[in-house]
Design a protein around this nucleic acid. Structure first.
Lengths: 344, 344
DNA sequence: TTGAAAGCGCTAACAG
DNA sequence: CTGTTAGCGCTTTCAA
């Protein structure tokens, strides 16, 4: 190899990207035929298809979906907003949702709102910039500008984890008020005379708590002491919550309804550390039925929400809209279920 | 409203999207000026800037980044591949990484490989289609086609959670072999005579285990019994692991090194269920120093990996490359630290 | 400080 | 079954 040549090589360094045109030339067809070979192979003769495939392999051609999206006005992207990615309740929902939409060729553009409506609004603005084909939102409370942007975008929207009569577009989840009431009923049926609540995180947990406490007060409970945290649930906060309930609110015995299994687990640990018997001294009810719930000591009584089902339903609702299928019900209630184990 | 009019309304329904052109016309400028107003406002006179901003507000214009990306060849997208989104170790890494790159205007396109190289390869192919400006990969083991595609894309790549002398591009993490050795040293220094290992998930955990066991065997341990699970770690599996160790492998006393704090927590729970004292009968060492580790009973001794730091370093490595800064070191070792609490 | 022209790489009609 | 012609809505030169 001569030195000149090498210099020439260096100056040739305009690694012109391999486009459909490149592939087309190599295969001896026009560029659109390559496009067809990729998108509707049936409409291309086997012979040319083979030549094109060969050319693609040889060139290492990687389709450019940003060009494709611009031309077709379909990005095959779904934007998803969840409060927190480290909260397994949301991440596992996303896992199922993602899998379901991926089967139809959609990719997820996911962001965290940190339980903040303002952040959510900002993110929606940013995400719409990518022209997603659809949007998933967590919860039913959104800022007005947020709703407007979404409405203006004219794309399918699904709100999950809650239900409402007035969704932006469609909505799949369950009623937090009903969940709170159901747990209150469970508490009464099992003869508890005192109850407390521990919550963390979002507005939905607060609605469960309110329904829970209200139902119990109406049933004659003197009061329902509570501990609320800003931000996420954790075992640490569960421990702290029981400590506060016992030390500061004179909570001696009864049942504690926690807004998350993680908090409930913390309560369990703190109870043990204090020598309190579960459920004899303090009974505990969690929320979420996370995988570990069946394996705590004692096994945790909790409220199960089928996140896999939720993810799939949300996906199919969106996919139906994307395929132009008219969906009769705007909101789908997947319900919940109290799973009785040993802590209450 | 007349019926005719309403019909007309219906037929008028070609909601022509608001483009820069629309905004430009309204503001009485050319389309490129709007582009400038958005991207380099300094180069536009205050007066026209104001008119443009007003026009944007009035029309509700939402920039189209797919067109922008096509024209500029910069998508402002970073593709990230992690084994599992529900594993908090990875999701919290993503949380920090995401935050760090977002500050520079990048958005994350995240996918799960499920610990599979084949899946990873397929996802890389799919993701490159979106023309991300950079890619983050978990681990240093990738299929050859995967490496080729990435190299061919000619974009910055960062591999995290491990270190190697031969990264695809750059790499930030820590040595799993060293971690395994360090735990073995810790075990010896603390006078334990018997040790076991419980692992789940990935190849990296296995490397830690191998280094751990080898070091101990070399130090004269007769054997290091082990329990390995395919797939993710969980409390349930931790309980199961201790059960197997005790019931099937006659593990009576000693220290158990777990590949995850979650497994360690399960071991703790099972030990308690069996009336085994920790650390007197079985000592336990976790891995990851998850938030709950300090709040188990007893508090968990574990190996801390600074995921926030890792995320930030990975981000800054990528951002440096994206800004054309030559990075001297191709691989950054952020190390780890054994956190001694009460279980060992 | 502003604009005109040319394309980014693909898909969408429409022909043939 | 294949090709031609127009764009998609931006950014990038280059001029003025």
């Amino acid at each position: 190899m001569l030195k000149n040549q090498r210099v020439t090589d260096k100056e040739d360094r305009s690694p012109r990207p391999v486009t459909m045109e490149t592939v087309a030339r190599l295969a001896g067809v026009s560029q659109v035929t390559v496009s067809r070979a990729l998108n509707e192979p049936d409409k291309v003769s086997p012979a040319t298809l083979a030549r094109i495939r060969h050319a693609i392999a040889v060139t290492g051609y990687v389709p450019n979906l940003v060009a494709g999206a611009l031309a077709s006005k379909r990005s095959k992207l779904i934007a998803a907003l969840i409060p927190s990615i480290t909260n397994i309740v949301y991440s596992s929902l996303m896992q199922h949702f993602s899998q379901a939409v991926r089967a139809s060729g959609y990719q997820l553009l996911m962001s965290e709102t940190g339980f903040s409506q303002d952040e959510e609004q900002e993110l929606v603005a940013k995400l719409l910039t990518r022209r997603p084909d659809a949007v998933l939102l967590t919860g039913i409370r959104h800022s007005d500008p947020c709703r407007h942007m979404l409405l203006g975008a004219g794309i399918p929207v699904v709100e999950v984890w809650d239900v409402t009569e007035t969704p932006i577009d469609t909505c799949v989840g369950f009623s937090h008020t009903e969940a709170g009431k159901a747990v209150a009923a469970f508490v009464r049926e099992n003869g508890y005379r005192r109850a407390a609540n521990v919550s963390a995180g979002d507005e939905r947990a607060l609605r469960r708590k309110d329904a829970f406490a209200r139902a119990l007060i109406e049933a004659g409970f003197a009061s329902v002491p509570e501990v609320c945290f800003e931000g996420g649930a954790s075992i640490e906060r569960g421990r702290l919550a029981l400590a506060r309930l016992v030390d500061e609110q004179a909570f001696r015995d009864g049942v504690i309804f926690c807004s998350s299994d993680l908090l409930a687990h913390g309560v369990l640990i703190e109870a043990q550390a204090r020598g309190l018997r579960v459920p004899e001294d303090v009974a505990v009810i969690g929320f979420g039925d996370q995988v570990f719930a069946a394996h705590t000591l004692p096994p945790l009584t909790t409220v199960r929400v089928d996140r896999a089902l939720l993810g799939e339903r949300a996906a199919s609702a969106l996919l139906a809209r994307l395929n132009g299928v008219e969906v009769p019900e705007k909101t789908i209630d997947i319900g919940f279920e109290i799973v009785r184990r040993a802590t209450a």
